[in-house]
């Protein structure tokens, strides 16, 4: 166990305080999402789906950027991850279109 075992930290990871804040935001967004589902004035409108999707994307981004450290980490990881993520998103839209999903009328 010499000195060099303590390799440089894999970039400065966020602090515990940041993690707790992120978790609080995630919880908050989840509460809002579920509330929207139950408030008829909102859930009956056409805005429900897009707003829920945006909120879900925000949660997704927060976890990936902070809990999975994509933000402070090397860009390599961001590229390796976002390219197939984007591809998967486009694939979902394309298949829904080609197979006539109800979302797209």
């Amino acid at each position: 166990m010499s000195e060099d075992t303590v390799t440089k930290p894999p970039h400065a990871h966020p602090s515990v305080r940041t993690y707790l804040a992120i978790a609080a935001i995630l919880t908050g967004i989840t509460v809002v999402e579920v509330a929207m589902f139950y408030i008829p004035a909102i859930s009956a409108t056409a805005a429900l789906a897009p707003v829920l999707l945006v909120l879900s994307a925000a949660k997704f981004a927060l976890v990936v950027m902070f809990f999975m450290h994509l933000k402070p980490d090397s860009k390599i990881f961001t590229i390796i991850f976002t390219a197939p993520l984007l591809l998967a998103g486009l694939m979902i839209l394309a298949l829904m279109t080609l197979l006539g999903a109800w979302w797209l009328g």
Binding site: I80, F81, L87, A88, G89
Partner: peptide, 8 residues
């Protein structure tokens, strides 16, 4: 990344 395509 591969798993993204699986779940996608």
């Amino acid at each position: 990344g591969s798993e993204c395509m699986l779940f996608g």
